[in-house]
C-alpha cells in the first residue's frame, strides 16, 4: 500500500523530549522522525520505559517537544480545544483517569463538550451506550456506578467506550487493553478496526505486545530507549528483520507454536525427556 498520495497527519522531524529528573536530564524521546498518514493504523511497540507513552502525550499536545518539529496537518501541535476536537486518546492507567466524586456515566457524557458541532445530550448518551455495548458492558449496569466500584479492566473498557462515542479523527490508544481479559481483547480490537474503517479514523496504537500490533495495524514502529529503531509495514518490520529489539520482542512472546519459550520450563524438559527416550 502506497502512502505517497495520502495527506500527512503527524509529521515528526528529529523530535526529542527530555524531563528534569532531579539534577540530571532524563531523555524520554530521542531524535524521532516519522510520518503518520491519513487512515493509518500505526502501532508503536516497545517495552516499558522506552518512551512510547511520552510520544503519545506529545501527539496529544500535552507535552511540547524539547527540540525538533512536530506538526499535525502541517501546523505545530498545540494543547487547544481545536486539537482535541479531532485528536482524542485512551490513556494507559485507567485507575487515575476518573474523578472519584462523579459517577462514571456523567464523566463519559462530559466528553461531548469537546465536540464541535456539539451533539445533544440525548444523542451523545446514545453514542456512549453503543460504545459500552461494543466493549461488552451493559449500559444499565454501570449507570449509577462510581469509579472505585469497577475493576481496572472495566474502567479501561469505559475509556475505550468514551473514545468510540467521540468518534475522533485521530485516536491515540495507549495500551488500551492491558487490563482486559485475554478473550475479550480480540473482540474489542475487532470493533476498533471496524469503526476505524467506517469513520476513516487514523489510529496510533501503543502496546508492548507485538502480536497485537501485527493483528491490528498496517504500520509498526519499534521503539527502544527513546529511539525509533525500526519502522515499516508488519511484513517489513517482523518478516525478515535483523534488528535486535524487534527480534527480542518477537522472541519474548509466549506463543503456543513455540517449542521452547523458556529454556528451563516444563515444556522444554518434557521435550528433552521425549528426545532421550
Amino acid at each position: 500500500m502506497s502512502n505517497e498520495n495520502k495527506p500527512v497527519v503527524f509529521h515528526a522531524d528529529n523530535i526529542s523530549k527530555s524531563f528534569n529528573a532531579g539534577k540530571h536530564l532524563k531523555v524520554a524521546v530521542k531524535n524521532a522522525s516519522f510520518d503518520i498518514y491519513d487512515g493509518d493504523f500505526v502501532s508503536i511497540v516497545g517495552s516499558s520505559g522506552c518512551g512510547k507513552s511520552v510520544l503519545a502525550k506529545m501527539m496529544l499536545g500535552l507535552y511540547p517537544p524539547t527540540s525538533g518539529d512536530f506538526t499535525y496537518y502541517g501546523k505545530p501541535i498545540a494543547n487547544t480545544k481545536k486539537h482535541w476536537n479531532e485528536v482524542q486518546s485512551i490513556f494507559q492507567d485507567p485507575f487515575s483517569c476518573f474523578n472519584q466524586f462523579f459517577s462514571i456515566r456523567t464523566q463519559l457524557e462530559d466528553a461531548r463538550f469537546i465536540l464541535n458541532p456539539r451533539p445533544s445530550r440525548a444523542e451523545f448518551a446514545e453514542r456512549v451506550d453503543a460504545g459500552l455495548r461494543a466493549v461488552n458492558m451493559e449500559p444499565n449496569e454501570i449507570r449509577e456506578k462510581y469509579p472505585f466500584e469497577l475493576s481496572g479492566g472495566q474502567m479501561q473498557r469505559m475509556l475505550i467506550a468514551r473514545a468510540f462515542a467521540l468518534r475522533p479523527k485521530v485516536l491515540i490508544a495507549d495500551e488500551p487493553t492491558s487490563m482486559v481479559d485475554a478473550h475479550v481483547r480480540a473482540g474489542i480490537l475487532d470493533y476498533l478496526m471496524k469503526i476505524k474503517k467506517e469513520l476513516n479514523m487514523t489510529v496510533v496504537f501503543i502496546t508492548h505486545d507485538i502480536s497485537l500490533a501485527n493483528y491490528v495495524s498496517n504500520r509498526i514502529f519499534i521503539m527502544h530507549d527513546g529511539q525509533i529503531v525500526n519502522q515499516g509495514t508488519p511484513d517489513e518490520v517482523l518478516g525478515t528483520t535483523t534488528e535486535p529489539t524487534t527480534l527480542k520482542l518477537l522472541d519474548d512472546i509466549p506463543d503456543v507454536n513455540k517449542q521452547e519459550w523458556i529454556p528451563n520450563s516444563h515444556l522444554a524438559r518434557k521435550a528433552k525427556i521425549a528426545e532421550n527416550a
Partner: peptide, 22 residues
Amino acid sequence: KNPQHDYTKMLMKAMVRCDYVK
C-alpha cells in the same frame, strides 16, 4: 490443541496470534 468444553474453545478462538512468532 484440543479443547473440549465450549468455554475453553471460545477462549482459544479469541486468542490473538502472530504468524511471525516462530
